[in-house]
Design a protein around this nucleic acid. Structure first.
Lengths: 195, 195
DNA sequence: AGCAAGTAACTATCTGGTTATTGACATGTG
DNA sequence: CACATGTCAATAACCAGATAGTTACTTGCT
């Protein structure tokens, strides 16, 4: 039990995820991560190199699991926006992590760029087949849909804080979710969509 | 010239603005701020108390000048969104500062809460007079409009980085601005808006 | 002189990262 | 079997540099 290096690595990664989500890269404390993981600080350097690389590992895993559980669907962008919204609300730490990354490590990684270009291509195709209004630039569509899905995070009284209970009641959240979905529908629906 | 305390205070505030926008609260360095302001570090504590209070002062001034130069107009939300967009693009440091604040100091201040409630009231009135679709919750409208205006910041290849040149060409930026304005129009326009 | 503005040097503490060492387990050898 | 050897996981103590905040002092203006 005490000699399982992969378990220790995983505990460190989990602890680092929480720490980075809460404090960002600059604010995160290596000692706190080690303590929360019940591991020795040294092992962070053995397994992950240094604080920055640990952050990279945390972010990569978080984004992987994120894009796995919310597959992109250009044929139903309102549904996709709702799914992204649900996932972020369910995992506010992931939301915070992404924002920290945006501030402290701007610029897209190769994986992000590839995923982005893939989505663009799918949107273009959906525009060609008439399922998305072709008047808007596909890159703009993507940006706006994501922006709408994440808008709650920046809202006044929004749950930018730590983890759980955050001022928004479930009803309020559900209503906002519906508003996001409807907004995406109005933006992306092709003309003459309401017969 | 060398003995003008208000000028020194202003220089410190400017330097602190840049520093906090670039590195956040945890990442900001008091020594760097003093050096950039060509002032003695001690004066930060004399004039502003400590690092956190200095951040508060920076944020307050930034938000004040922000809301001054972009007045809220519920009767023309697309135009308002465009104006917010323009202002943030012209002052990316302000955008970053707001996001840092959201992460490192969650929760709305009294001033923010008041401004928010004021906007809500104006939106409600605009819905009553039929200038905004009344089907959506006013709080959601506000959140979505702001989210759209800021969506570019989170975009792939977006200018989350430092200050100036950031991958987005002026043309790309103008196109995205038009997309934001059009998106807000589609979301907020009352039914039967196109005669 | 007297007061406000400004400064250099200092300190206590923190923090990322490292060194030297120990403990556990497996394997090969006589 | 008994025992030496090598390897991997883990640990405690340590260190050099950084950092927020302070103390005691000087400068310049009226």
């Amino acid at each position: 039990m005490a000699r399982d290096s992969s378990a220790t690595k995983a505990r460190l990664l989990d602890a680092a995820f929480s720490e980075f989500a809460a404090y960002g890269i600059a604010g995160a404390r290596v000692d706190r991560i080690a303590e929360a993981a019940q591991a020795n600080k040294r092992l962070i350097y053995v397994y992950y190199g240094n604080k920055e690389q640990l952050f990279d590992a945390v972010l990569q895993r978080a984004l992987e699991t994120g894009s796995e559980s919310v597959p992109f669907d250009a044929d139903d962008l309102p549904g996709y926006a709702g799914a992204v919204f649900d996932h972020l609300v369910a995992h506010p730490a992931l939301m915070r992590l992404v924002v920290w990354k945006q501030l402290e490590r701007p610029g897209a990684t190769d994986a992000e760029g590839a995923s982005y270009r893939g989505k663009i291509a799918v949107v273009v195709e959906a525009q060609r087949t008439g399922r998305i209004d072709a008047a808007l630039d596909p890159a703009d569509i993507l940006t706006l849909v994501l922006g709408l899905s994440q808008a709650w995070f920046g809202a006044v009284g929004g749950p930018a804080a730590g983890g759980a209970g955050t001022g928004w009641t479930p009803e309020r959240l559900a209503r906002h979710r519906a508003a996001v979905v409807e907004a995406v529908r109005r933006i992306t629906a092709p003309p003459q969509d309401t017969p």
